[in-house]
Amino acid sequence: MLQVNSIYKTFNPGTVNERVALNGLDLTLNDGDFVTVIGGNGAGKSTLLNAIAGTFPVDAGSIILDGTDLTGLAEHKRAKYLGRVFQDPMMGTAPTMQIVENLALAARRGDKRGLKWGITKDEYEKYHEMLKILELGLEDRMTTKVGLLSGGQRQALTLLMATLKKPQLLLLDEHTAALDPKTAAKVLEISDKVVKKNNLTTMMITHNMKDAINFGNRLIMVEDGKVVMDVSGEEKKKLTVAQLIEAFSNI
């Protein structure tokens, strides 16, 4: 369970560029919730995900995940509990390292890294099987440098890396926004499959209203650094794109 308790974040305080990004935002996620997050540009969606991931400290409030207080933890320490896929396909992988090396790095998320081998023999086989699920042919290119992959392939790989070690919370930050429609649909489909298979608690930011309705069991809208709409279950299933757009204009 994720509890976000009235968190505040102001960027560039005391300057002309001062911007309140999170304004006492409250949110509780139950285990297994797959929440789609929508909201206008600058509403605070990405800031919310980054605050949970620890990219920056929040000004006030607390973030508690399954009883662990994340609020004061450094980004790399929180990584133990979190899986993340970013909007920019360049951000989630190490381009100069092989596909298999990237996976091996992800398999050790949250572990102490010592002088044991970075990749063991059995890992190759394990990753080969996992890459097959993506249906992108990556299983035959395991020693290829990730820098040579396309954006869609990278996002699919990042997704696999984020879930290789089961995270307590999966954060998808507009992870299909930079992809062409066909690839985006494919990555979304893989995401949905992975989330359902592992019953992952997930937050997914999207600008696509249809996706926001079709995926997940719950939908929230963020505006001015707060959650302004929160629908789930049957109510969410009945939502239409037109209703959502109207909700947007009412804010």
């Binding site: 989630g92 390292m97 091996a104």
Partner: peptide, 28 residues
């Protein structure tokens, strides 16, 4: 041998993509 270990790999990841490294729990 060292750059093939977990620690050595972490240094390589840090050099090539700090964002990715931190997201994978590496203290950059």
């Amino acid at each position: 041998l060292f750059f093939g270990t977990e620690l050595g790999s972490a240094i390589r990841a840090t050099g090539t993509n700090q964002n990715m490294a931190r997201a994978q729990g590496i203290n950059t």
